[in-house]
Amino acid sequence: MEITKIKWQRIKMPLKAPFETSFGKVVKKDMILVRVYGGGKVGIGESVAMPYPIYSEETTGTVINMLEEFLIPILLDKEIQHPSEVSEIFSFIRRNNMAKAVLEMAVWDLYSKQTNQSLAGAIGGTSKEIEVGVSIGIEPTIEKLVEKVERFLDEGYRKIKVKIKPGWDLAPLQAIRDRFGYSIPLMADANSAYTLDDIDLLKQLDQFHLLMIEQPLAHDDIIDHAKLQAELVTPICLDESIHSVEDTRKAIEIGACKIINIKVGRVGGITEAKKIHDLCEQHNIPVWCGGMLEAGVGRAHNIALASLANFTIPGDTSASSRYFNEDIIVPEVTLTRPGFITVPEKPGFGFDLNEHLIGQLVLNEKEYTKDSAEKAFIRTN
């Protein structure tokens, strides 16, 4: 593969409405776009890191630092034949998965454009369309929550995910079941808000017949999740605890979960995400693609990932209009029929950039060539 230049841009996009979880409230999408140039093509990636270290230790600031000081110089100093080599090149660097992922995603997109194939096809995806659900944050009132659930069901979404936290759990779930019955696919996402001291409360979730409860316990735990899963009928889905295929192997071996949420940014890139997908498929563990309030570029990469065969549960990749008045891609992501998004077939991630909007939103940017990148630290062995 030819890589001649790399550029990052930091942009902030206002959300249509605040999105609240047990972490806090998000009102703007603060993100990094990375462009990798080569062979007359440009590959694009989008970082999912937040401006504050609440989902993980990474932030938009740490991503910029890692790109500038380490990852971009390292990549420009190497000759690679295939995107799968990028994760191995970066493997000696501890964590910083979101920074690694945004660059690797851009390389995958560049490769698929250079080889004239869709990103989904390049990574081995086979589905022509993907089922999608929607994620609903913590609302001001139960009435507002029920109204949103009704609207999204009317729009055809195939799974409803609601955020929960202590004090906002049993009552909202009961209200949804009372209003819509038990036939709608419903799950709860706790974002690590509980401990084993809450086991009696968590066992009450079984009465709602949920698809799953996502990451109820600590963000870095699998041991207590195994203890909890043994007490629950409801499947546990791990999210924040899974950063690699090794984490996945251990979680499966001890029975810490029955489902895994795969996020490209959390696990360090598409290559690692595929390894996790393949291991889960071998062990009959279904997977689905989670969301991080991505704008269009990240959303398109998620669509490509979710075209892999073992993504059998609808993901969080809703339409662009769910979060933004205008997206950074054209056309925007839309439901091509109720509850489904068509996987793009054009080369690369499948959309064009809305350069006019990006130009309005850019806060700062920087580009590097093989000659200009400061090689502050290059591993030579």
Rank of each mutant, 00 (worst) to 15 (best):
residue 259 I to H: 01
residue 263 K to G: 05
residue 243 H to F: 05
residue 237 C to L: 07
residue 231 E to H: 07
residue 262 I to N: 03
residue 275 K to Y: 01
residue 264 V to F: 14
residue 247 D to I: 02
residue 244 S to F: 00
residue 253 E to V: 06
residue 274 K to S: 03
residue 268 G to Q: 09
residue 272 E to Y: 10
residue 227 K to S: 05
residue 276 I to V: 15
residue 237 C to M: 15
residue 274 K to F: 00
residue 233 V to Y: 14
residue 254 I to C: 06
residue 275 K to A: 12
residue 242 I to V: 10
residue 230 A to W: 07
residue 247 D to H: 13
residue 250 K to R: 15
residue 234 T to I: 03
residue 265 G to N: 00
residue 228 L to Q: 07
residue 257 C to S: 13
residue 255 G to M: 09
residue 261 N to V: 09
residue 231 E to S: 13
residue 273 A to M: 10
residue 265 G to E: 01
residue 228 L to I: 00
residue 261 N to H: 05
residue 270 I to N: 08
residue 276 I to Q: 12
residue 267 V to E: 13
residue 264 V to S: 01
residue 240 E to P: 08
residue 282 Q to H: 14
residue 239 D to G: 05
residue 227 K to W: 03
residue 232 L to R: 07
residue 256 A to H: 02
residue 227 K to P: 02
residue 248 T to P: 04
residue 256 A to F: 01
residue 279 L to Y: 15
residue 257 C to R: 02
residue 234 T to Q: 06
residue 229 Q to L: 09
residue 240 E to I: 13
residue 266 R to L: 11
residue 264 V to E: 01
residue 257 C to A: 15
residue 259 I to P: 05
residue 243 H to A: 13
residue 261 N to A: 10
residue 266 R to H: 06
residue 243 H to S: 11
residue 243 H to M: 11
residue 241 S to R: 11
residue 276 I to F: 02
residue 274 K to E: 05
residue 258 K to Y: 08
residue 245 V to E: 10
residue 255 G to A: 07
residue 237 C to K: 00
residue 267 V to F: 01
residue 273 A to S: 15
residue 257 C to K: 04
residue 230 A to C: 05
residue 234 T to H: 11
residue 268 G to Y: 15
residue 271 T to V: 10
residue 280 C to D: 02
residue 279 L to A: 05
residue 278 D to S: 12
residue 249 R to F: 12
residue 249 R to I: 08
residue 239 D to K: 10
residue 277 H to W: 05
residue 241 S to A: 14
residue 245 V to S: 11
residue 250 K to Q: 15
residue 241 S to Q: 12
residue 281 E to F: 13
residue 258 K to N: 14
residue 257 C to T: 03
residue 238 L to K: 09
residue 262 I to R: 00
residue 244 S to N: 08
residue 278 D to M: 01
residue 261 N to W: 03
residue 251 A to Y: 11
residue 279 L to H: 00
residue 230 A to N: 10
residue 273 A to L: 03
residue 260 I to E: 13
residue 264 V to H: 02
residue 259 I to M: 07
residue 233 V to N: 12
residue 258 K to L: 10
residue 253 E to I: 12
residue 282 Q to C: 12
residue 248 T to G: 08
residue 241 S to V: 04
residue 254 I to P: 07
residue 252 I to V: 14
residue 268 G to W: 05
residue 236 I to D: 11
residue 232 L to T: 04
residue 235 P to W: 03
residue 240 E to F: 11
residue 275 K to C: 06
residue 261 N to K: 07
residue 268 G to D: 04
residue 266 R to E: 08
residue 262 I to V: 15
residue 255 G to K: 06
residue 255 G to V: 08
residue 251 A to R: 05
residue 247 D to C: 07
residue 249 R to H: 15
residue 248 T to W: 00
residue 242 I to C: 08
residue 264 V to R: 00
residue 236 I to R: 04
residue 282 Q to E: 14
residue 275 K to Q: 14
residue 263 K to N: 11
residue 242 I to D: 04
